[in-house]
Design a protein around this nucleic acid. Structure first.
Lengths: 228, 228
DNA sequence: AATCGTACGATACTGAGTCTCACAGCATTC
DNA sequence: GAATGCTGTGAGACTCAGTATCGTACGATT
């Protein structure tokens, strides 16, 4: 986990040059020169010029996976929230780096694509675990996909807001708020299964007093639609 | 919209070579040679080697945006479903191309990243329009993000299933089914706002007869939790 | 002191993507 | 019917990312 001094010097040199001249205007030779090493050494530490900006996504992904693997379907919601918090915490830990990277990524399409791709890896991870936990329930793959994408979207929304604000507040409260939305959605989908065979169910809807009869009919139709 | 013959020959040559030799083993020179043109001409028609696989995302994106722009908050749900259907229809229209691309993208990381990046553009588009439609409501940006990501996730899940099955069935029925999930989620979030000031609301829950009193209490607590 | 492994530098090479220039075809204009 | 201008194309040079190979200096081990 501890980064080598050479690796750190390379990252500093790279970020410095990217900010001074721009990403495209900086060559790997420039970075290596400023860090006082050869071009070969750069590519020994980072597989590509982009990677110098996203150094530890692999480690973070591993941490998230470890957290998910430590849980079962029973504790799924807690596990997911924990996992998301781990990711956000990682950004908050060295906020300056996150902020510099955020500003850089906003200006360079190639880096933006890279970032999007790594977000997709988290989403895939969530999808796989949620899919396992949901195995056997109806529409499991679909619901896994929806849950994973919602969780990731909630995280990203909170993170982007925090980054745009310059990291000036504690983002964990907004994160919990956002995750509440997602959790309620999960619960709602769970309850939407409809009655099991051999069980009656009374269907009732709640409306403000101002609701028109049409509103009521629409809602009832929508509810019945979920069971045909 | 009509592709020039040269552009078409280049695309055919590229896909053919990618399938025969693999993506990385095919150079732009190879593609140009098979198409009977020069390397320069290749880069006049396609800005990069990757782009030859994803030719018309821009046009499709424009169509989707046009559909979204033609709507207001009142008809938001219909607009979104239409927009998603437009995208799926585009894949279904020339299914062979979609299938070949799908198989290729599954094997080549660089192409996968490109695909993910273009999906993100659709999600961004949805997020912007939904955000406008939701403007003024509480947590509008968060909910816009969640809705956009859910819509895109639903589409992708259906599309991937269809592609994996070799395009052997009509995917619009599964799409509608998936969109139902999303719409119900929207509705649920809408209704979760709670009663407006000055309006009473009767809160009622529906349960199978087998539900225990604890189940009932949990549900009521969850519902009330959304309003504190 | 001999040896082995590791890290680094130097160099050459492939291939993507950019740029510039020259030229051919084809229409317009006088 | 020649001069003019526009458009699409080919040719070639160039930059730079990324890969592969080789030689070597340094430090640890025995």
């Amino acid at each position: 986990m501890a980064r080598s001094p050479t690796s750190q010097r390379l990252a500093d040199a790279a970020i410095g040059l990217f900010n001074e001249r721009g990403y495209d205007e900086t060559t790997v030779d420039d970075i290596a020169a400023r860090a006082g090493v050869s071009r070969s050494t750069f590519f020994r530490y980072y597989r590509s010029k982009e990677e110098v900006i996203f150094p530890d996504h692999d480690a973070l992904l591993a941490k998230v996976e470890a957290r998910l693997r430590a849980s079962t379907a029973d504790t799924a919601i807690v596990a997911i929230c924990d996992a998301v918090r781990i990711v956000l915490a990682h950004y908050v830990e060295d906020a300056e780096v996150s902020l510099r990277r955020y500003r850089l990524v906003g200006r360079v399409p190639a880096l933006r694509h890279r970032e999007i791709a790594s977000v997709a890896r988290y989403q895939r991870l969530f999808r796989e675990y949620v899919g396992d936990w949901l195995a056997g329930t109806p529409d499991a793959p679909l619901r896994a996909e929806l849950m994973a994408s919602s969780v990731v979207a909630a995280h990203n929304q909170v993170l982007r807001g925090w980054l745009r604000a310059g990291g000036s507040y504690d983002p964990f409260e907004p994160l919990d708020h956002a995750l509440q939305y997602v959790i309620r959605t999960f619960r709602h989908l769970e309850n939407m299964e409809g009655p099991r065979e051999g069980e009656d169910q009374v269907v009732v809807a709640a409306f403000p007093r101002s609701a028109s009869p049409d509103d009521v009919m629409d809602a009832i139709r929508a509810h019945l639609g979920s069971r045909q």
